[in-house]
Simulated scan of single mutants.
Amino acid sequence: MIGQEFYFAQRSPYFKGYAKQDTTFKDFFSDKQTALQGIMNNPAKEASRSGPSISYGGIPIAKIKLPAATAKKNNEVLSNLYKPIYIQHSSYSGEAVTPYSALENKTFTVTGWEILKEDENLCQTQVTLKDADGETVQWKIYGRRESGIAVFTKGYLEKLKQTWVNKPVYFIEESFAPSSFYNPLDKQTLNYAQGSKWQCTELTFLFDESFFGKLHLILRNDAQQEIAVQIDDRGSLDKQLSLFYIWSEEKYLAVKQKEKAAQEAALAKEESDKKQQQKDIKAYRESMIRQFGTANGNIIADGKVKMGMNQNMCEAAWGYPSDRIKTQVGAHVIETWFYYPAGSWLKFQDGKLVQIKE
Rank of each mutant, 00 (worst) to 15 (best):
T111W: 07
H89F: 09
D323R: 13
C123Y: 00
L190I: 01
A177I: 03
K16F: 01
D131I: 06
S48E: 14
L237K: 05
S50M: 07
Q355G: 04
N310P: 09
N105G: 04
K260T: 12
Q199M: 08
L185T: 06
S91G: 07
R290W: 00
D27W: 10
I54W: 01
V97Q: 09
F6E: 02
T109E: 14
K73P: 03
N191T: 04
T336S: 10
K306L: 14
D233W: 05
K20E: 15
D222Q: 13
N41W: 04
F348N: 03
G17R: 06
Y18H: 13
K117T: 10
I2L: 15
T109F: 00
V127M: 10
I64Y: 03
G51V: 12
S30A: 15
F8C: 01
G235C: 03
P43L: 14
M313K: 06
S48D: 12
S55A: 08
R145Q: 14
K214N: 12
S236P: 08
Y92T: 11
S272Q: 15
S287V: 04
G143I: 12
G38D: 12
K275S: 12
W139A: 10
K275P: 01
S90V: 09
V354N: 07
F15A: 05
Q355Y: 14
K306G: 03
Y192M: 03
P60A: 11
Q263Y: 09
I246Q: 07
D238W: 00
N183Q: 02
A44K: 05
I59H: 04
K20W: 11
V127A: 02
R11C: 12
Q124Y: 03
I334R: 09
L346W: 01
T98S: 07
D222G: 05
V151F: 02
A342M: 07
M1E: 14
E259H: 12
D27M: 05
I2E: 14
D22H: 09
N80L: 08
F171P: 10
F348E: 01
E259G: 05
S272Y: 11
T327L: 13
N75K: 13
T128C: 14
F108N: 11
N41C: 01
L237M: 05
L267E: 15
